[in-house]
Structure formats: structure tokens, C-alpha cells
């Protein structure tokens, strides 16, 4: 028979030890989880994801009004594709930030909780991507393999189209600027011509023939500083000297020979 009384002391010792360790560990974990939960999210709310889930949960019975039909699958597919596109954007952002951030962390320039936030965002995105692939495969077998390829192209196409549209939008602005400039050039040129004529003391008031003025269009400018829109070096000032004449000749001479250039393209 075991002597319980003499064992009581070591058992009590063990009990206290394990009990205190367990309390400490649970408290510590709870506190850590709380801390992690209060960390600010890396990205703002994932709108596309929210919409996707809202659509999934949009069930007919909960609508108070007349019966609404279930959401068709094609709408959900479109929503999933939008979600994948946003995921790509986020994953790209994380990837580009990772190196810089780890460098800053090594040097001690940023705090540890920023790094924690980043790691959490990374993990979340991993889960998110996996979830999207699983959902896609549920809609159509094999779609999971290509949904992110499609989403990537969609993202890049969007970016590219926005840039092209930006260039095209400037056309009206440029046209307005050029029309204004052209008239001021013409006026300046006419004035010069008139002055010359008056000096020559002739009574012939006819201004320069239109053809002549047109020829001179790209040539001289009245002293007018024009800030130039839309170039890489913004606000280059083109200051023109009214005394200079016939600048266009080398350029337009070159142009004559090059008219055929466009035809090469098939």
C-alpha cells in the first residue's frame, strides 16, 4: 500500500507548479491575442470580398419585401473575379513592401508591431487567395488554376486603359492651347506686316495673304510664355522671340520627305 500521506507533499508541489504554469500560459496567450486583435489592419476593408459574401448571404427569405429570386451564379462569378482582381493588387503591394520593410526593421527604423501587422496581412492574404481558388473550383472545375491569371490581365488592362484615356483626354486641352497660340501668332505677324507696309508709305491696306500667314504659323511667336501641359518635365517655358523668323523651315522641310512614313505599318 502506498503511503499517501508522505506523497501528499510532492503531489501538492506538482499541482501548484502545473497550475501556475497553466494560468500563466493562458493569461499570456489571451493577452497576446488581444494585442494582435487591436493591431490596425494593413489594408482597408476588402470591399469586393464583402460584396461577394453579401451576395452569397442575400437569401430570399430574409427580404421583407416581395420574394426576390436567388442570386444567379453568373453574378457570383463576376463578384468572385472582382475579388480576385483586388487580391492581386494587394498581394503585389505586399510583395513590393516586404523588402523595404524588412530592411527598415533590421536597422531598427520601424517598430516591431508594424512588422507584426505586416505578417498578419501576409497571412490573411494567403488564406484569402486559397479561399478564392477553392471557390472558383467549386463553380467550374479547373477555374481555380486560371482565375488569377485572368484577374492579373484584367488589372493590367485596367491600368493601361486608364493611362491611354488620360493621353486622349488631353487632346481637347492641347487643341485649345494651340488654337489660342495660333491666333496670337497670326495677329503678331499681321501687325508686323502692317507696320512694314506703313513704313513703306503705301496705301494698300490689304493684310498679308492667308496663304502666307499659314505658312508662317509654326514659325514665330509673340513673346508669350506658355506652360506646357502633359510632358515629363512639366512647366517648361517656351519663350519665343518675336524677332526670329522662319524657324519652321528645317522642320517642315524634313517633314515633306517623311510623309510616307506611316505606310510601313501593316
Amino acid at each position: 500500500m502506498v503511503d499517501w500521506l508522505s506523497l501528499a507533499v510532492p503531489l501538492a508541489y506538482l499541482g501548484v507548479l502545473i497550475g501556475s504554469l497553466a494560468t500563466f500560459s493562458s493569461l499570456y496567450r489571451k493577452r497576446k491575442a488581444q494585442k494582435a486583435a487591436t493591431l490596425e489592419a494593413w489594408f482597408p476593408a476588402h470591399l469586393q470580398r464583402d460584396i461577394y459574401f453579401s451576395l452569397m448571404h442575400l437569401d430570399p427569405s430574409s427580404q421583407t419585401e416581395k420574394k426576390t429570386p436567388a442570386v444567379p451564379e453568373s453574378v457570383l462569378k463576376a463578384a468572385l473575379l472582382r475579388r480576385a482582381t483586388e487580391d492581386i493588387r494587394r498581394v503585389m503591394t505586399l510583395r513590393s513592401q516586404k523588402q523595404a520593410l524588412s530592411m527598415l526593421l533590421q536597422r531598427g527604423s520601424v517598430g516591431d508591431d508594424l512588422w507584426q501587422r505586416f505578417l498578419r496581412a501576409e497571412k490573411e492574404m494567403e488564406d484569402e487567395v486559397r479561399d478564392v481558388v477553392a471557390e472558383a473550383n467549386a463553380y467550374a472545375p479547373g477555374w481555380g488554376q486560371i482565375i488569377f491569371q485572368s484577374a492579373n490581365e484584367m488589372l493590367n488592362n485596367d491600368l493601361y486603359r486608364a493611362r491611354v484615356a488620360e493621353h486622349q483626354e488631353k487632346a481637347a486641352e492641347e487643341r485649345e492651347w494651340w488654337d489660342k497660340k495660333k491666333t496670337s501668332i497670326q495677329e503678331g505677324f499681321m501687325k508686323e506686316l502692317n507696320e512694314e507696309k506703313e513704313e513703306g508709305s503705301t496705301s494698300g491696306q490689304t493684310p498679308a495673304t492667308p496663304a502666307k500667314v499659314n505658312e508662317a504659323v509654326p514659325v514665330t511667336t509673340p513673346a508669350k510664355a506658355t506652360s506646357v501641359q502633359g510632358s515629363d518635365d512639366d512647366a517648361v517655358l517656351v519663350e519665343a522671340d518675336p524677332s526670329v523668323n522662319s524657324l519652321g523651315s528645317p522642320a517642315s522641310g524634313g517633314g515633306g520627305g517623311k510623309k510616307k512614313k506611316g505606310k510601313g505599318k501593316k
Binding site: L47, Q48, I51, E73, S74, V75, K77, A78, A79, L81, R82, A136, Y139, A140, W143, I146, I147, Q149, S150, E153
Partner: peptide, 29 residues
């Protein structure tokens, strides 16, 4: 406003998906 623009994009994408052959998922690039 953000939600509404997003929903417009979604509806546009949905229309272009509908013009595809079943199963109405975009093919590989």
C-alpha cells in the same frame, strides 16, 4: 459612393461574362 462604383464595375463585368460560352468563366489569357 465607393460601393456604388464597385457595383457598377461588377454589373459591367457580369454582362461581359454572360456573353461567354457556358460555364461563363473567362478562358485562360
Amino acid at each position: 459612393a465607393a460601393i456604388t462604383t464597385e457595383l457598377q464595375e461588377l454589373n459591367a463585368l457580369h454582362r461581359s461574362l454572360l456573353s461567354l460560352d457556358p460555364p461563363n468563366t473567362p478562358p485562360a489569357p
